[in-house]
């Protein structure tokens, strides 16, 4: 089966610093792939390259087997690739529905729509549907998102990416700032999305979480892929060993 998204030999320099030195990566339909590595291994840079935020110096990115150029996040999104950022890219003063539809507002039909008039009721209704579908519970849909708890805010951010992604969702540390209950809720959302056939890429430092939620694990070290595991067959020691360089797989790069 062709992977949905595949990266081959990606190289990215920041000045004299070589962040990625020929990194490869792949994720298939309906699977959660965890991308792990020590700080500075190049995870964030790779995600940026695959979500259009950075343009790689060299290497190939294949979407459904076809080479693509992701020159901006807008291009990536148009191709069905969404990203949930670590630093909560939501507008805290807007309500959840407004955040869900940010940049993709539904306009009224007819002349009013031509003037840019929004169909707020429709957006609210559809947002409520989506939140229900994804199991996101909010006490109210018309308070600013800044007044919600951290978990609810993150759930909205995750929901926003998931609702609009048609192929791949990147999640950069989606549970880092959350308590136990909230973390479980977000992980539930991830599993639901995977079950609907989406490709999910999870970046996380939390190894037990990685093993519990992902199907496969790919390990980056010093800007290269150094190991690949099937989550069910891997142990915590394997992952840590691969991240620190104690364990290497010849075929991984």
């Amino acid at each position: 089966m062709t992977p949905v998204l595949q990266a081959q030999n990606i190289v990215k320099h920041y000045g004299s610093v070589e962040a990625l030195r020929g990194a490869s990566f792949e994720v298939g339909q309906g699977e959660v792939v965890a991308l792990i590595g020590d700080n500075g291994a190049g995870k964030s840079t790779l995600v940026k390259c695959l979500s259009g935020a950075e343009i790689p110096d060299s290497g190939t990115i294949l979407l459904d087997g076809q080479p693509v150029t992701l020159d901006s996040p807008v291009t990536a999104r148009r191709l069905g690739i969404e990203t949930v950022y670590q630093d909560l890219a939501v507008a805290p003063d807007l309500d959840p529905a407004a955040n869900l539809f940010l940049g993709r507002e539904i306009r009224r039909k007819g002349l009013l729509g031509k003037f840019g008039v929004l169909d707020k009721a429709e957006m609210r209704r559809r947002a409520a549907d989506e939140f229900t579908r994804l199991g996101v519970t909010l006490q109210s849909i018309d308070v600013p998102i800044g007044a919600l708890s951290g978990g609810q805010r993150q759930s909205v951010a995750v929901a926003r990416s998931v609702v609009w992604a048609s192929k791949v969702v990147f999640m950069d540390e989606p549970t880092a700032a959350l308590g136990v209950v909230q973390r479980e809720k977000v992980l539930d959302v991830i599993k639901r999305v995977r079950d609907e056939g989406m490709a999910v890429v999870l970046i996380s430092h939390n190894m037990p979480e990685v093993l519990s939620v992902s199907d496969r694990v790919e390990v980056l070290r010093l800007g290269r892929r150094v190991a690949r595991f099937t989550a069910a067959e891997a142990s915590l020691e394997d992952l840590v060993g691969a991240m620190t360089g104690a364990l290497t797989q010849e075929d991984a790069a």
């Binding site: 996040p73 807008v74 999104r77 990203t83 950022y85 630093d87 890219a89 939501v90 507008a91 805290p92 003063d93 807007l94 407004a98 940010l102 940049g103 993709r104 507002e105 306009r107 003037f115 840019g116 008039v117 929004l118 707020k120």
Partner: peptide
Amino acid sequence: LVLHTTRFGRYTFAIGSNPEAARRAGI
């Protein structure tokens, strides 16, 4: 009306609320 009912108004709020979020949302 422009501020409170249109996309122009919505983007005005979004940019003031979190310009980075607005940029990432493709605004």
